[in-house]
Nucleic acid binder design. Structure first.
Length: 488
RNA sequence: CGGGGCGUGGCGCAGUCCGGUAGCGCACUUGGCUGGGGGUCAAGUGGUCGCAGGUUCAAAUCCUGUCGCCCCGACCA
């Protein structure tokens, strides 16, 4: 492994790839666009998963599991939905291999399937085919189900964590008796996503909804959280869809109301994926590597013992016992690095991996009843007593969590601009960041701007105020106030 | 789908133009001295050169075919 990272400011993309590899998060699988998530990277996802799993269970949702394989015909049921996914579906056509004297092993032509099977790009279709069986009466509603699963989208261009052919996510699928209830669910989940991003990943987000062009195929309305990455580009970090009655109609899911009338069910679906890991990297990382928010860091404190012989090692080990006890008691995730690499090597290594706090303990410290405590977020390094260290660490972790958030928030604010003319708009987009402006609501304007500048409408913020605005492009009165940016 | 690049020890590469039996850095192993910001010295391990065919006394190198991956673009969450 060579030293250091390419500087973040000169080549963000190379910096990102290097961090994923050097922090030991993931690597490419043998099949194009696939990703092996390595233990350290997976722990990060696992922590995110655990947090969100608790959130949705606390709000009445339960987990279930639906199959990976979906009959090809299901996808055809909802017209817009097909359009959205048809081009990137993996299709299973055969069920057997057989030995071949010349080529080693071949697909057995005899095993061709009558009806081909697709690998889920998302599960709306199979879930609504099942919900049809489960729903007859208003008494069966609402259904509030989530599943943790993998999905496959055969992408042209892939990047580890941000867009891979197969990725892990959660997909929530709910069924409701009324449009109001479905709308409330959609927004409640959006709020949970905001909390997940801001309170746990320390990543400020904008909440809003998508334009027609950008929304999920099959949804009436797509809400999203959008975050700003370190290169000032936007990343969609989570989506919550109000599906209206589209899937109910496609799969003929009706129920009897209290008043004994018949009605189609209202639906929502929502998801966040392993892309969040990429988001954390790009939102907080620096030239030394990852910087992890303590709440999701696999290791919150790394202890680097320093000793030149067995006797000193024993001494340090003993000296650390109260620290261990304190960490265990307080539920702090820690790791002691006793490998025989040099201390300097370990400092760099654990900084690359983004561990929020480092505690150095050597013979000198044992003698003076001290330790060196270093912060990853700002590089501060202090000599403290062991007592002080034990006392201050929980608070420091909180400080770091908040510090990362406020740093990212400041960055987002510094790079968000309001513009009034198209010239200003183009100049600002060129510099990067979010641009807030008026839009006349027409797809023509949206397309024209996209072709002209490569920027897209990231969202129409929930707190928009289009009343006094005119469209940046056409000069007509604005229908919406929108956030424009170049996006991942 | 279009353009470009690359397949040689675990990783990164040189060697290919001009054919002569494979080399460098990192990593790895063992030992010594070291250890508070990527230590150092010494001795080692490891490769049918992506695959298949051809030319040749001889192929990593030349020819033909084939497979795969990466990057940029187009498309798309």
């Amino acid at each position: 492994m060579s030293k250091g990272l390419p500087p973040k400011d000169s080549d963000f993309s190379a910096w990102y790839n290097a961090i994923v590899s050097k922090a030991d998060l993931a690597e490419h699988g043998p099949v194009k666009g696939t990703m092996v998530i390595k233990p350290y990277g997976f722990q990060l996802w696992d922590n995110i998963k655990e947090i969100f799993d608790k959130m949705i269970k606390a709000t009445g949702h339960t987990n279930a599991y639906f199959p990976l394989f979906i009959p090809k015909s299901y996808l055809a049921q909802e017209a817009e939905h097909v359009d959205g996914f048809a081009k990137e579906c993996a299709v299973v056509t055969h069920t057997r291999l057989k030995a071949d004297p010349e080529k080693g092993i071949i697909v057995d032509p005899e095993s061709k399937l009558e009806e081909e099977v697709i690998v889920r790009p998302t599960s709306e279709t199979i879930i609504w085919a099942m919900y049809k069986k489960w729903i007859q009466s208003y008494r069966d509603l609402p259904i509030l189900i989530n599943q943790w699963a993998n999905v496959v989208r055969w992408e042209m261009r892939t990047r580890l964590f941000l867009r891979t052919s197969e990725f892990l996510w959660q997909e929530g699928h709910t069924a409701h008796a009324t449009a109001e209830e479905a709308q409330k669910e959609t927004l409640d989940i959006l709020e949970l996503y905001r909390q997940l991003a801001e309170d746990y990943l320390a990543m400020p987000v904008l909440t809003g909804f998508k334009s027609e062009a950008e929304k999920f195929a099959g949804a009436n309305k797509t809400y999203c959280i959008e975050a700003m990455m370190g290169d000032k580009k936007a990343l969609q970090a989570g989506t919550s869809h109000n599906l209206g009655q589209n899937f109910a109609k496609a799969f003929d899911v009706r129920f009897q109301t209290k008043e004994n009338t018949e009605a189609f069910v209202y639906a929502t679906s929502w998801g966040v994926s392993t892309r969040l890991v990429g988001a954390v990297i790009m939102a907080h990382g620096d030239d030394k590597g990852l910087r992890l928010p303590p709440k999701i860091a696999p290791i919150q404190v790394v202890i680097i013992p320093i000793a030149r012989d067995e006797a000193q090692a024993e001494m340090v080990k003993k000296y650390l016992q109260p620290v261990r006890d304190s960490f265990e008691e307080k539920g702090i995730r820690y790791h002691e690095d006793w490998t025989d690499r040099s201390p300097g090597f370990k400092f760099n290594e654990w900084e690359m991996k983004g561990v929020p706090l480092r505690l150095e303990v050597g013979p000198r410290d044992v003698e003076n009843n001290k330790a060196v405590l270093a912060r990853r977020d700002n590089g501060d390094k202090n000599i403290v007593s062991l007592e002080e260290a034990k006392e201050s660490i929980p608070n420091l972790l909180e400080e770091i969590q908040e510090g990362l958030f406020s740093q990212a928030l400041q960055f987002q604010k510094d790079n968000t601009h309001t513009v009034e003319t198209y010239d200003e708009f183009k100049a600002q987009i060129k510099k990067g960041g979010f641009v807030r402006c008026g839009w006349d609501g027409s797809p023509e304007t949206e397309t024209a701007i996209k072709n002209d500048t490569k920027a897209t409408i990231r969202c129409i913020p929930l707190d928009e105020n289009p009343l006094e605005l005119t469209c940046i492009y056409s000069g007509k009165p604005a229908l919406h106030e929108v956030i424009y940016a170049k996006a991942y």
